[in-house]
Simulated assay, not measured.
Amino acid sequence: MERKTIIQKRFINQRLAETTWLSSPEEVVFHFGAMQSQNYGQSLWAVGSRLITPNEQTVKQAIDEGEIIRTWLLRGTIHLFSARDYHWLMDLIAPRIDKICKPYRTKLGLTEDILSKSTEVVKTLVAEHAITRKDLALNLAKHDLPSSGIPFAQLLVYLSSRKIICSGADETFRNTIHIPAPEYTYTREEALKELAKRYIQSHAPATLKDFCFWSGLTVTDAKIALEDFTKEGDFYLSSTIEKSSPVHTVPLAGFDEWIIGYIDRSIVLPEEWHEAIITKNGIFRPAIISAGQVVDKWEKPKKKAELTGDYWNRYIQFRNML
């Protein structure tokens, strides 16, 4: 498949084309299944750039009110996903996260006894109200439990995967009681296929390796998940009807799905920009794409005057810098 065709189809499926923008943050996240949210501030724009009316406060509100969940998910990294999808996604992915993290927890000295005590302490802390990361750490320290560094970070991943905590307002942690009960209980195979459906409808054309990387699933599970989709060469295709749309210039968020959603990024990330956009320690910097390919990087501006070019208009609206 030609590079130009891949970019055109992805631009539509990734909801970056004007004709495909969505009306609410939850709709955007639901379409993707999950969106990388390693950097909270940047992930707000990742969602906002795909809205009909981009507004930073609208995205924040959807997270603060629990319509969108922010916690550890695919590949054990932080993602945004719809509260409607919380239970089946966590049930599918959490065992995979646990398998990856368990040996690491053992090396860090996070015994079952420590994990059990930590769980009870945190359950009590978040029973009635959300709590900041700092206060959570302080309270764990009072009980001589992990409260800093990598052991604390791993404890948070553990608590998230056990559905003890998830995101609260203003980047706090709260309990998961407010999350609606699932309307339907998926079998494991159904969950695999639903995850593949979301990935293909939002990322296609994409390969098996792309999906394995994005989802963190094994090749065996990924093949089961993708078995009903049409292929052209190595690329799985979306079944949605696509209309031609201009691939205009867009300032992308850091960790945007346009780049991070694939293991092979050479189609959209030229070699000369690779080190500038992806750091050695795995940080994905904000990038500007033109005709679908990275042509520059950018940093969060403090003033509207720093932004020149019509392609900044939607970001200016998003940040309320008018």
Rank of each mutant, 00 (worst) to 15 (best):
M1W: 10
K4F: 10
T5M: 05
T5F: 05
I7D: 12
Q8M: 09
K9F: 07
F11G: 08
L16R: 01
A17T: 09
A17M: 03
T20W: 05
E26G: 00
V28D: 11
F30G: 01
A34W: 09
A34L: 01
M35G: 13
Q36D: 13
S37W: 10
S37Y: 01
N39E: 15
L44V: 09
V47K: 01
S49C: 11
P54E: 09
E56C: 07
A62G: 03
I63A: 08
G66P: 02
G66E: 08
E67S: 12
T71G: 04
L73I: 04
L74D: 11
G76P: 08
H79A: 00
L80A: 07
F81D: 01
F81V: 01
H87A: 03
W88L: 03
I93H: 00
A94V: 11
D98Y: 11
K102L: 02
Y104R: 08
Y104T: 09
L108Y: 11
G109L: 07
L110H: 13
D113P: 03
L115P: 04
S116A: 12
L125G: 00
E128V: 01
E128L: 04
H129Y: 13
T132Y: 14
L136P: 14
A137W: 11
A137E: 08
H143A: 14
D144P: 01
D144Q: 15
P146R: 06
S147L: 02
I150M: 03
I150E: 13
Q154T: 10
L156E: 03
L156W: 08
L156F: 06
L156Q: 13
S161R: 15
R162L: 07
I164C: 13
S167Y: 10
D170T: 07
F173A: 04
R174I: 05
H178L: 02
I179Y: 11
Y184N: 03
Y186W: 12
T187Y: 13
R188D: 12
K193P: 08
E194A: 11
E194T: 10
L195F: 15
R198P: 08
R198Q: 12
Y199S: 00
S202T: 03
S202C: 05
P205W: 00
P205V: 04
D210Q: 04
F213Y: 15
F213L: 06
F213Q: 02
W214S: 07
G216W: 13
T218G: 07
T218V: 04
A222T: 14
D228W: 08
F229Q: 02
G233I: 04
G233L: 06
G233N: 06
Y236G: 06
S239T: 12
S239C: 06
T240C: 10
T240L: 05
I241M: 09
E242P: 01
P246N: 00
H248Q: 07
H248S: 10
H248G: 01
P251I: 02
L252S: 13
I259C: 00
I260T: 12
G261C: 08
I263R: 06
I263S: 14
I267Y: 04
I267E: 14
P270T: 07
E271R: 05
E271Y: 09
I277S: 04
T279G: 08
G282P: 12
A287Q: 12
I289F: 10
G292Y: 09
K302E: 15
K303Y: 15
K304W: 10
E306H: 14
L307H: 02
T308K: 15
G309T: 06
D310C: 02
N313W: 01
N313Q: 14
R314I: 01
Q317R: 11
F318V: 01
R319G: 13
L322Q: 13
